[in-house]
Structures are given as C-alpha cells and as structure tokens.
Amino acid sequence: MDLSLSTRSQDDFEVIEVSGEIDVYTAPRLREALVELVSKGHHNLIVDVERVEFLDSTGLGVLVGGLKRVRSHDGSLDIVCTHDRLLKIFRITGLTKVFGIFDSVDAAVASH
C-alpha cells in the first residue's frame, strides 16, 4: 500500500490527512509535504494518521522533524490517532510526551 496525502484547512490549522504506510520508503514524501507547508507559512499543523496502516521509526522521525520546524516559528504539530498499534510506537519511543495526540481533528483544534 502506498502513501496518500491530502491537505485541508480548518480554522487556523492545516490538517494533513495521511493514509497508507509511512515507512523508510514513503516517509520522504511526508517530509516534503511538511516542509512545503512550513515554507508557505503554515506553522500550526495537525497530522491525521487515522487511516495509516503502518508507521515505523522513519515516519516518527519525519513527524519529529516537522515538530521542530513549526516550533522554530512558535507553531504546533499535533497528531490525530486512536489506533493502539500506532499509539504503541509513540509510547515505546516516549513521543507521547512530545506530541499532542488527540482522538479527532476537532479535539486537536479545541486544545489550542
């Protein structure tokens, strides 16, 4: 399964909806999308991984890289995820303390 990305705006946030597999092969495409958004001045991002089937450490690295970029502009990068198989990876790596992880895009927006 390939990686699909789509972007939309909600309130003051750019929501990146990701589906498919984020791995060592596909993660560069997500990185490019995040870099492009930040370069266009979008510094409050929400990455929705509800339709992601697989996420590895390369994907996590891309998300952390995105977080660093937006924070350098006083922005934010939140994650929307409810799947245990993905949340486990965030827990193992300690990234649950780094990202805001929410059940829905609305909840992520409301947290700000």
Binding site: D23, D56, R85
Partner: peptide
C-alpha cells in the same frame, strides 16, 4: 493480533 503488529514493525525496522 498485537504480536503480529510487533513482528511487522520490528522486521521493517531491522530491514530498513
């Protein structure tokens, strides 16, 4: 179940 998810991810990490 979860163990199969662990196998999938671990193999991906090691092979990657």
């Amino acid at each position: 179940g979860p163990m199969l998810d662990d196998v999938r991810l671990a193999v991906g990490e090691a092979c990657g």
